[in-house]
Amino acid sequence: METFTKQTVQITLRVNGENHSVEVEPRMLLADVLRHEIGLTGTHVGCEQGVCGACTILVDGAPERSCLMFAVQAEGREITTIEGVTPDEGMSELQASFQKHHGLQCGFCTPGMILTSEALLARNPNPSEAEIREALSGNLCRCTGYQFIVDSVQDAAAAKAVNHTNADGGSDKEGA
C-alpha cells in the first residue's frame, strides 16, 4: 500500500492515443485537467452535474461525463476527446455530416454530440431516428432543435453503410 501526503500528484493519462504526465490535485475534475492542463479545450463544460452533456468524452470507447470523474480516476483508461476523432486533415465522416446538414449553430454542444454519436454508430451502425434521439437525449443543445443533428447522424450512418457496401461489392467482383 502506498500513501502520498502531498498537495498534488503526478499521474499519467492516456488521451487520444498519447500519454500525458500531469500534476494534479486529486479533487480536479477530468474536464478541467483535459482543458487546462493538457490543453484540449474542445471538451466543453456546461453544468458540472452531468445534465447537459457538453463535457461528454469517450472512456474506453463509451460516452461518459468528464465533469463527473476526477482526473486521478482516469489513469489506465483510454480517453478520447473531440480532438482525438478529428483527422489530421479535413473532417471525420460524422463531422462532415454535421457541417453538411447544419447540425450545429453555436458549436458548444457539438463535441459532446459528435462523441456520443461516434459511440452510437460504433455499436449500432444503422440506428433509427428514435434510437438516435434516445442516444442523444443526454446531450442538450439550445440552438438547433435537434432535427438537423438527427439528420447529420442518420446521414453519416447511411454514408458508412454505402461505403461498406461498396467495399463489399468491390471484393465480390475481385472474387468473381
Partner: peptide, 21 residues
C-alpha cells in the same frame, strides 16, 4: 451554402471564453 465556421467548431478547435488563457 454549408457554413464556413463549422470546420473549427466540429473539430473542437474553436475558442470560447473559458479557452482564453
Amino acid at each position: 451554402i454549408t457554413r464556413i465556421e463549422d470546420a473549427r467548431l466540429v473539430s473542437g478547435q474553436a475558442r470560447y471564453l473559458d479557452d482564453v488563457d
